[in-house]
Design a protein around this nucleic acid. Structure first.
Length: 579
RNA sequence: CGGGGCGUGGCGCAGUCUGGUAGCGCGCCUGCUUUGGGAGCAGGAAGCCGUAGGUUCGAAUCCUAUCGCCCCGACCA
């Protein structure tokens, strides 16, 4: 491609609205352009990279036995009503009506679409396993899109679905996809972890997320350096030295005593005021679970895991109660809440660690007052004792006890073993060898293609701009003649350009008649791994310069050799991550 | 969903409080000079000031409504 004919609108100024490096750089390098909130045009450079990611995905999925299809993006409400998600999917599902007043939606994911397909074509156990995937633009009306391609409302996604006769068979399909994903992200050159995850609103029995490691990631993950256990913080188990499932009050605890604690409201303030350890305080939170108040107890330094809590409560909508609601429910202000004397109609749930506490401190449900010498089981009781807290960096690994490491991650892929959550209500059943009908056992597998690009740029950038691995960079090499007025320089550059292309290398030829400084700045910004610089002085000695984007200095190479040298480097780079 | 901010040539912004000729930087066009890390000089084109109403002799500026975009929060007693 000749730069002079390409659409690569770079800009000098850093866009003020962009926070993430990937977002900022993609705007500056002319990769993307925003049309409206969370909706971007992929300009030629971004689109070339995205297609390379797609190609890797296609190769690996096809090698794993999956077939590509293209399901409709606009879907009738009918199939979403069958699965039950028409009513349960939130406002992210964009619903609309056609001229006949029929209800439709833009499919944010395709379990319904593919299950409807399977229902009509998978009838016998002989028809399975089947594994179908597609790469398509998805639309989700996100609460708050942010970070450019990181969390857009419109984005490119690969979604795939497997159908099997049993859970055992589905596990095999799941494992194949897990392995394929591992190869895909390896080939993309990314540093990532596969972690155990919560299955969220898609549903299903278990799942893994593929998380690209990046400081700017939105997800927190924990991983064990010894045994390889890795999980999203939302899901991570907490290892307990002792797991008590009931209170066992001790008789030696003195009678409960109410004292004035004044302005000390947070756990730490109260602990400091009373010169005690924060872990000797009971933290009391009030939630509304589907509108009903519940009280949650944990040790002072522990933090609630809302995902676990929602599972325990079996509710769909879980929110913290507002300050006003709390006052109404607890008859005291935030900062003085506790489990003692809570109205019987309000269920109390405690984390396991609370069952290990004795003679502790908690709010008195009397503004600005706390209780001393509170004994769980004597002074209050609870409806259930459960695992409710977040695992933290430094906690013991639930499998081997080693200290867990914390990372931030960007979720680029997710595999779910769905089970029969969709096949059953939608009637996707097959007949077994005995002629009995069973619902297909499904798995579903997603990769955010555009997010992979953003995540890659989060991992690969520096002060000068983007610096992508050759496999997913928009071009392999940029050829930069320094002086377009010099016929000799231009002729040499043209020949290198033609020869590289003939050798199968993707080249951006910076044939713009601009000053050298402009070319250097732009060419660094674009993230193309190799640059060949052709200057008059070197050319007179039969030399050109060659530089990897990450190198500090140029290397001089004979004009006659440069194509071979570059070709060898690029070809080697393209093999990285392949087995 | 709550809070805050912003809509003015292609981009980034000033002007708005205190109504009176629409401005700056970058980019763009022309010419000359320059030519290895975002050149200099000279000349030039380009904006119904988000939209709709209202107040006024007069509105980018005041009032009302509306649309859009961005940021923060929704991990906490």
């Amino acid at each position: 491609m000749r730069y002079s004919q390409a659409l690569i609108p770079t800009r000098k100024e850093t866009p003020v609205d962009a926070e993430l490096p990937s977002h900022r750089l993609m705007l500056r390098a002319g990769y993307i352009e925003q049309l409206t909130a969370g909706i971007y045009t992929l300009m030629p450079l971004a689109w070339r990279s995205a297609q390379k990611i797609e190609k890797i995905i296609r190769e690996e999925l096809e090698a794993a036995g999956a077939q590509e299809i293209l399901l409709p993006m606009v879907q009738p409400a009918e199939i979403w009503k069958l699965s039950g998600r028409w009513d349960h999917y939130g406002k992210e599902l964009l619903r609309f009506k056609d001229r006949k007043d029929q209800e439709y939606c833009l499919s944010p994911t395709h379990e319904e679409g593919v299950t409807d397909l399977a229902k009509r074509h998978i009838r016998s156990y002989r028809d399975m396993p089947k594994n179908l995937f597609q790469i398509q633009v998805k639309f989700r009306d996100e609460l708050r899109p942010r970070g450019g391609l990181m969390r857009g409302r419109e984005f490119i996604m690969k979604d795939g679905y497997s159908f099997d006769v049993s859970y055992e068979a589905a596990e095999v399909s799941y494992k194949k996809m897990y392995d394929a994903y591992t190869r895909i992200f390896k080939r993309c050159g990314l540093a990532f972890r596969a972690v155990e995850a919560d299955s969220g609103n898609i549903g299903g029995s278990h799942s893994h997320e593929f998380q690209v490691l990046a400081q700017t990631g939105e997800d927190r993950i924990l991983s064990c350096p010894k045994c390889g256990y890795a999980a999203n913080e939302e899901k991570a188990e907490v290892k307990r030295t002792v797991t008590a499932t009931a209170f066992s009050p001790v008789a030696s605890t003195p009678a409960r005593e109410e004292i004035f604690t004044g302005d000390a409201h947070t756990i730490d303030e109260v602990a400091a005021f009373l010169k005690d350890d924060a872990n000797n305080s009971i933290k009391t939170l009030v939630y509304l679970a589907d509108g009903n108040p519940v009280v949650i107890l944990m040790r002072g330094n522990d933090n609630v895991n809302e995902i676990k809590l929602a599972h325990v409560l079996g509710c769909e909508n879980l929110v913290m109660a507002s300050d006003n609601a709390i006052e109404e429910i607890m008859h005291a202000k935030v900062g003085a809440l506790g489990p003692v004397g809570v109205d019987d109609s309000i269920p109390i749930y405690a984390d396991y660690n609370v069952a290990l506490m004795h003679n502790c401190i908690c709010g008195a449900n009397h503004t600005d007052h706390h209780f001393l010498h509170v004994e769980p089981g004597r002074d209050f009781n609870v409806k259930a004792i459960e695992d409710l807290i977040l695992a933290q960096e430094g906690d013991a690994c639930p499998h081997c006890g080693e200290k867990l490491q914390g990372f931030k991650g960007i979720e680029v892929g997710h595999v779910f073993l769905l089970g029969t959550k969709y096949s059953e209500p939608m009637g996707a059943t097959y007949l077994d060898a005995n002629g009995d009908a069973h619902p297909c056992v499904m798995g579903c597998y997603g990769i955010g293609v555009t997010r992979v690009l953003a995540a890659a740029i989060e991992q690969y950038n520096d002060d000068n701009g983007i610096n992508l691995p050759a496999v997913i960079a928009p071009f392999h090499v940029i050829v930069a003649p320094m002086l377009m007025k010099s016929e000799k320089v231009v002729a040499a550059a043209e020949k290198i350009y033609a020869d590289l292309r003939a050798a199968g290398i993707e080249v951006l030829f910076d044939d713009r008649d601009v000053r050298a400084g402009v070319k250097f700045k732009d060419d660094d910004l674009l993230g193309i791994p190799y640059r060949i610089t052709i200057g008059e002085r070197n050319l007179n000695e039969g030399m050109v310069e060659f530089k990897h984007r990450a190198d500090a200095d140029n290397t001089k190479v004979a004009l006659a050799d440069v194509v071979e040298v570059v070709k060898a480097r690029v070809m080697a780079d393209l093999e990285i991550g392949r087995q």
